[in-house]
Design a protein around this nucleic acid. Sequence first.
DNA 1: GACTCGCATGAATCACGGC
DNA 2: CGCCGTGATTCATGCGAGT
Lengths: 248, 248
Amino acid sequence: MSYTLHRGDALTVLKALPDECIDAVITDPPYNSGGRTSSERTSRTARAKYTSGDAAHDLANFPGENRDQRSYRSWLTELLTEAYRAATEHSVAMVFTDWRQEPTTSDALQMAGWTWTGTIPWIKPASRPRKGGFKQSSEFILWGVKGTLNKDRDLYLPGHFIASQPRKGRVHITQKPVEVMQQLVRICPEGGTVLDPFTGSGSTGVAALRERRNFVGVELSPHYADVADGRLRRELTQDDFVLAGPEA
Amino acid sequence: MSYTLHRGDALTVLKALPDECIDAVITDPPYNSGGRTSSERTSRTARAKYTSGDAAHDLANFPGENRDQRSYRSWLTELLTEAYRAATEHSVAMVFTDWRQEPTTSDALQMAGWTWTGTIPWIKPASRPRKGGFKQSSEFILWGVKGTLNKDRDLYLPGHFIASQPRKGRVHITQKPVEVMQQLVRICPEGGTVLDPFTGSGSTGVAALRERRNFVGVELSPHYADVADGRLRRELTQDDFVLAGPEA
DNA sequence: GACTCGCATGAATCACGGC
DNA sequence: CGCCGTGATTCATGCGAGT
C-alpha cells in the first residue's frame, strides 16, 4: 500500500491528475469556506429571511440571496467533474454534507456526471440538544456512481452509521471516526486507489491504508498537510512493523 | 381530545380550512419514488413497486403515486402553502420523504413559506441489502417552522429515530410506527391540533390522541378512510375506558 | 421465561424481454 | 434503439414457534 499527499489547491491538483487513475472519491468538502459567507453562517439563512410572508416563493427569483449557495454549487460541481474524469468506470464518489447543503450537494454530484445512488445518514449521538425542537445530530453522505454499480462484488455495506466524533487525540474540527471511514473505503476494490481532495487530518487515508487501498490526498493548509503526512506515514510503518513482527 | 377525518382530496379540503386553526402539520405525502425509469415510478401501483412479489399479506393500494418530479414539487408546494395559511405562528411542519425526493421536498417546503430547520433521519433496521454497495435503510423527515421556533417550551426532541415498520397488524404499505409518531406530535403544544393531509391508516392521528393533541386528517381512499376512522375511534374509546377505569 | 432456530418480508433494485 | 413493464434476486431483521 502507498499514499501520495499533494500540498495545494484541490481543483488545481485534480486538473493535473491523469484520466481514470482513481477507483473511489471519498471526501468532506469545506462547506463553510467554499462559497458561503460568514454572515450566512452567523445570521439566519438567506432563504429564511424571505420566506416569512404567506405567499409561495419561487427560489429562482432570489438570485442575490442564493449566490453563496450557488457559488458553492458551481465550485463543487467543477471539482466533482474533475474527480469524475480521473475516476475509472464503476467508481463511487462519497461526499459528506450537512442537512443545509444536502440539496445543493446532490445537484453538484449529479451535474458532475455521477449517478446519485443514495444518502447515508451518519448519526453523532453526542450532539447538543435543542430547546423547543428536534436536535440536529446527523450529517449525510451522498454517494454516486460513474456508470453503473459493480454488482459482481460480494459486498454488502451498511445503510447508516452511528459514531461519535473522535474525542481524544482529535486534531481537526471535522475529523471523522476512522471506523466509519474504514467501512466507506471498502466501496473501493481492494488494491485500488481512494482520492480525498480535502484530506484534512487524513482519516480517509488512514482508513484506506488499513483496508489495503492506496490513497491520493490533497490538502491546502500546510499545518494539516503535515498532520496528515505524519498520520499516514505512521500507518505505513505500523503496518510494516505488524508485517515484520511475526517473522522476528 | 377529538378528531376530524375529512374524506376527499387533500388540497381541496385544505383550501376550505380557516386560517390559523392548526398547530402542527405532520404528514407523509405519496412521493412517487421507487424506480429507475419514470415509467417504473409512474406506471406501477404503489403495491407493485414496494412489496415483494411473494409477500403473503394483502395490503390495499394507495392513490397518488403517479406524479413526475416537477409536478410533485408544484403540487406539494401548493399543498404546503395551504397548510402554512391554516397554521398558527410558530407552527412546525414535518414532511416524510425518501432520499430521492429530499431536495424536491426541501424546495417545496421553503417555497411554501416554511423556514426549513432540519432533516431527521428515520432508520429502518430491517431493510433490503444491496449487492455491491450501501443499502438504503432510511427515510427522512424534513421540518420547518412558520416564523420562529418557540424556544420557551421545555421540550427536547431526538435528532434521529431507529424503528422498524410495524410488521404484525400492519394495514398500510407505508404505515409508520406509532412510537415514532408519538415523538413527532410532541412538537405540537399539548391540547393543540395536528393536521395530516395524507392520513392513510391514521398513525399520526393515533399518536396525536395518545399524546393529548387534537387531530384533523384527510384521506382520499375510502378504504383507508374507514381504516383510519376505526383506529381513531378505538383510540378515543380506549382512552375513555382508561380514564373511566380507575374510577370504577 | 430467556433464548435459539427458522422463516417470511422489505416506500428495493436490477436484468431482461416486449412493444 | 430506447422506453416501458414484469419477474427474479438479496440478506439483515423481527416475529412466532419450540426448547
